[in-house]
Design a protein around this nucleic acid. Structure first.
Lengths: 247, 247
DNA sequence: GCATCATGCGTACAGCGTGCGCAGCCAGGT
DNA sequence: ACCTGGCTGCGCACGCTGTACGCATGATGC
């Protein structure tokens, strides 16, 4: 009986109100969804990514996305592999450049994580186990570098994993620190200075821990972080080099 | 009119139905909440941790927890620092045992992460930046080891960070792999064998990547993972050792 | 011109974190 | 002995989440 009454926000059956897609874009596709998700994540971080929000961002309904993506977890896998695609991974050549090649790959991976700090919050769920094409490309290339360096087949895999583990560990720590920083709204130097009183207290109980705010004062924090990263990377490469010399 | 009608599950105003706490435990406290959260996380993983669920697990209402914990994020910080408390961190002694001490700490940290695989999903949000007492204790001890090894003050910090980054990167990768495995319900060997067809395909495009299922066949996967971890750890320690020799 | 199919979307459900205000208990002052 | 003020647990409510389902609409093949 009341079925034909006007319902809340019922589309008036007028020619003028015809749904008429207003997007010129070729509609929806998995690549576009992934791209939009990366854009949203870069701009507002992991907490801002919801299917509804991503929908409105693309001018569609949330549930429409599910035609091209099985669920949110799958979307995240896709998004992670997408950013792995940004890596600069030198083609392997001779047995000479392996050290520079691995170092360059490491810095490239770190750069990617710092450009997309949200990957840090997500790597723990996705891990290195999801086998996306770009991640496989990275493994392949780095394995090639290790082989070119002269490692026997079985050990090359171990060497590559060692480098990747270090780089990922260092980069995710750094990214989560930077995310925290971003949420605080302050600049990095301001932030460090605001920590001084707290660390004074902490240092009382922990005499060895150094007060970086004073120890490194005056240095550009960004450069400093890069030096810290490179120090560890070089130590691993040193370790691999001595291992090579021994055979 | 209908206001005095019996509502769903209204407490009958009878002496016998008096609320009367049935818990013998000294009620609610922050330590108990943290302990219960760790128990729940260990048993069912990160997805199972909700304030409501944790409430029912403790026999109280969800919102009661907020008297002792500011919000879920803070609870997670507390929980992470709690498990850092399990680490075995040798007291520093002389300049001889530094390598074993660092290696032991590394394996201890890895063991903790594998016992509590959910920390992997959470480290990206919390990072190393939350300054909990147990995390500070770890930094302090490991810095002590680096100083005992003979590193100058400024470099000891870099050395310690290098080791920790590697260990965390390797352990979180491993933990997220194991979580994935656990969700699949299969045993590790079954899982690896089920991957064989997929990796055959992948190997076609990536000739260098080795097929571990065949390459390491027959070995206990758990031991294998530990060897992989130790290989990288030893390479870092090698790198630090050569750095020490040079001065 | 008609049938088939892929696509977008409205509605709905169960679950989430958490702000708010009330109710009961315990300690301390009179 | 009584009152009082604060601490604690909790019911309710709000706005948000991921996503299953079924309908409508436009494109495509015969």
């Amino acid at each position: 009986m009341s079925s034909s009454e006007q319902q809340t926000s019922a589309p008036v059956p007028s020619v003028w109100a015809r749904p008429r897609r207003q997007k010129e874009q070729p509609a929806l596709s998995q690549e576009q969804i992934v791209a939009a998700a990366v854009r949203l994540l870069d701009a507002e971080g992991i907490e801002a990514l919801s299917m509804r929000r991503l929908g409105t961002e693309m001018g569609t309904a949330a549930t429409s996305l599910y035609r091209h993506v099985a669920n949110k977890d799958e979307l995240i896998e896709l998004v992670v592999d997408e950013v792995y695609g940004e890596l600069e991974l030198p083609e392997t050549t001779g047995p000479d450049g392996w050290r520079e090649a691995l170092a360059h790959s490491g810095h490239s991976l770190r750069g990617m994580v710092l450009r997309h700090p949200w990957v840090a919050s997500v790597l723990g769920q996705v891990g290195l186990a999801h086998l996306g094409p770009n991640l496989m490309r990275m493994s392949e290339r780095m394995l090639g570098m290790a082989l070119a360096a002269g490692f026997p087949k079985a050990e090359a895999d171990l060497a590559m994993k060692a480098v990747m583990s270090y780089v990922l560990g260092a980069s995710t720590s750094e990214a989560s620190y930077l995310s925290l920083l971003a949420r605080s709204g302050r600049s990095e130097t301001e932030w460090l200075e605001s920590l001084v009183p707290a660390s004074q207290q902490a240092l009382a109980d922990h005499p060895l821990t150094q007060d970086h705010a004073t120890a490194w004062q005056g240095k550009d924090p960004g450069l400093l972080r890069e030096e810290i990263f490179d120090y560890g990377l070089q130590r691993i490469l040193d370790g691999l080099a001595t291992r090579l010399d021994r055979s």
